[in-house]
């Protein structure tokens, strides 16, 4: 585990969260959490249920607006933004419960991921022939590469509603990838999968990270997976950060062990 450390030292910070506070009404979901994500690393967020992991992702991609704290992305402090503006900044994500467009085919779902890269306005699209079609075909080529990469060629015209769970998860990953994000947020990408599907998904995540150099932030409950693929891990509990570091460091941290195994009183 020395290699990732070296990788990090050379890289710069892509995302930095400083003293984030988030509460709903009177309930505190996140209190005073700070951590950073280096460019090109795989960063995992772990913690027991209700620790504030998903809220953290929602803060990063703009669904929730923290009451306090600063978010720095790509070297600039980020003002309060709507999720669709954040998509244009280069952050995309998948959801814990699959959030695909049920009425559309696999191809259309992934093509939708190209939204931020398509520019032709409504009039060109109304005419279709010419620039709009040209743009469509260029983006289709990109999408076909992703389809090849994820090995889902055979189902590209199938409506996503008909696909089994594991494949749907893969399509959702494809849609997020189609946006060519700088940073990819994965909310429990392996939840509910069997061992083989998990292995496939791990391979895709690592491949994405390797091939495109995409920075990845993921939430996962399977400790084996996290320890295997993450470069660094943040541990949350009750909305607080209780650990941060490489998998080895975190694994041997007493506070983390207590949080997971409980403390005898």
């Amino acid at each position: 585990m020395t290699e990732p450390l070296q990788k990090m030292e050379a890289a710069s910070k892509l995302l930095e969260l400083k003293n984030i506070d988030l509460s709903f009404g009177g309930v505190k979901a996140i209190s005073n959490i700070s951590f950073d994500v280096m460019e090109g690393e795989v960063r995992a967020i772990i913690g027991p249920n209700g620790a504030g992991k998903s809220s953290m992702l929602n803060v990063i991609n703009g669904f929730y607006h923290p009451q306090q704290g600063e978010i720095w992305f790509d070297g600039k402090q980020r003002r309060s933004m709507k999720p669709y503006q954040i998509a244009y900044q280069g952050i995309s994500r998948t959801f814990q419960n699959i959030a695909l467009f049920k009425g559309m085919s696999v191809l259309d779902n992934i093509m939708t991921g190209r939204f931020t890269h398509m520019r032709k306005n409504m009039l060109w699209q109304a005419l279709w022939k010419g620039p709009a079609e040209q743009e469509e075909i260029e983006n289709r080529e990109f999408v076909e590469d992703i389809i090849d990469f994820l090995e889902i060629q055979a189902i590209r015209k199938t409506p996503v509603g008909r696909l089994p769970y594991g494949l749907q998860k893969r399509v959702e990953l494809g849609r997020a990838l189609a946006a060519q994000p700088k940073m990819l947020l994965l909310d429990e990408p392996m939840a509910g999968m069997n061992v083989e599907e998990k292995e496939d998904m791990c391979r895709f995540i690592l491949d994405v990270n390797d091939t495109f150099g995409t920075t990845i932030v993921l939430i996962e409950h399977d400790m084996g997976v996290v320890m295997d693929i993450a470069d660094r891990v943040v541990v949350l509990d009750y909305g607080r950060k209780i650990g941060d570091g490489t998998p080895d460091v975190v694994r041997n941290d007493q506070t983390v062990i207590d949080a997971y195994l409980g403390v005898s009183h």
Partner: peptide, 22 residues
Amino acid sequence: GRLGRSWMAIRDMDIAAEIIGV
């Protein structure tokens, strides 16, 4: 095309549409 897909995305799941940039 792009516009139609953004409509259908809003129809099928508006939250997911938003994270894609719609």
